[in-house]
């Protein structure tokens, strides 16, 4: 094997703009992830809230959580969002659902998107939230 100089470390640990996308429908998840990556945003793709918890439990830096609410896993997106915010207070949060937004999102989410949503609008919201300073709330 040819010895190759290490050019750089992996990007996820370096990135100041990493989004954890939690969506159980792979074709939607893929579409969102592709759109965000095309904007130079690092993306971690989780297929349900349980997978997302594994990521949140790790040392990976994440600036924004974008989660669906209804998923066929032990946890739903709302419980995930509460847990994520409690343990990573600076985290930005976008919630998407095919159901109308309820009161439970007040004071929790930075943005809510009703499904189906316009992808470019979603990407723009992600970009603007990532550009804002981190939350200082506890």
């Amino acid at each position: 094997m040819v010895s190759v100089e290490i050019a750089r470390e992996p990007r996820l640990e370096e990135s100041q703009r990493t989004v954890l996308v939690v969506e159980d429908e792979i074709l939607i998840r893929l579409m969102i992830a592709d759109a965000l990556r095309s904007q130079g945003i690092a993306v971690i793709e989780a297929s349900n809230a349980d997978e997302a918890l594994h990521v949140l439990q790790s040392a990976l830096p994440i600036q924004l959580l974008l989660t669906d609410i209804h998923m066929p896993s032990a946890l739903d997106g709302l419980a995930l969002a509460h847990a994520a915010r409690a343990t990573r207070p600076g985290l930005k949060l976008i919630v998407a659902s095919s159901q109308p937004a309820g009161n439970e999102l007040a004071g929790l989410a930075d943005a809510f998107f009703a499904k189906p949503f316009v992808l470019t609008t979603m990407v723009e919201r992600v970009r603007s939230l990532l550009a804002e300073p981190q939350h200082a709330r506890e």
């Binding site: 949140l56 946890l75 419980a79 509460h82 847990a83 915010r85 409690a86 929790l108």
Partner: peptide
């Protein structure tokens, strides 16, 4: 930390 946050979310009806 995540486990206790989840328990709080459940107890508070957040989930």
């Amino acid at each position: 930390d995540l486990q206790s946050a989840l328990e709080e979310a459940h107890a508070g009806g957040g989930a």
